[in-house]
């Protein structure tokens, strides 16, 4: 499994032609206490950079963008019931949605862990 990152502080776990997407621990620390998450509908076709989900803290709402093009295969319903998971386990249990990767060449534009660490340093 490969993990890639976007400059918008999202992560992607790549397994075969499926990408699992969430926001980084750095992103949750900047957002503060998450109180609401809105997820895309399963089956929706997302284009790269399209607003796909919304994460709301006490203070503000932020979009989560589709980092690559693809159809939504599955969403993490646990986040609707327990939005605070985003704060406690951003890189793990608090994944947002899974995409069927439409075009693997889009992955070339993403960062690896070392590059992302440098990005937020």
């Amino acid at each position: 499994m490969t993990t890639l990152y976007t400059s918008d502080h999202e992560w992607l776990h790549i397994e075969g032609d499926v990408a699992t997407i969430g926001i980084t621990d750095y992103a949750q620390s900047q957002l503060g206490d998450v109180v609401f998450v809105e997820l895309p509908k399963v089956g929706r076709s997302l284009k790269k950079a399209e607003a796909a989900a919304v994460v709301e803290s006490v203070k503000a709402a932020s979009d989560v963008y589709a980092p690559i093009t693809g159809d939504v295969l599955e969403v993490n319903e646990a986040l609707a019931a327990e939005p605070a998971l985003v704060n406690s386990d951003a890189g793990g249990k608090a994944w947002f949605f899974k995409l069927k990767i439409a075009d693997k060449s889009e992955l070339g534009g993403l960062m690896d862990e070392a590059a992302y660490a440098a990005h937020i340093a």
């Binding site: 503060g32 206490d33 109180v35 803290s57 006490v58 203070k59």
Partner: peptide, 12 residues
């Protein structure tokens, strides 16, 4: 200061 390390929820 908009928040301290405790965070908005705990401060509230």
């Amino acid at each position: 200061p908009v928040q301290y390390p405790a965070g908005v929820l705990k401060e509230h």
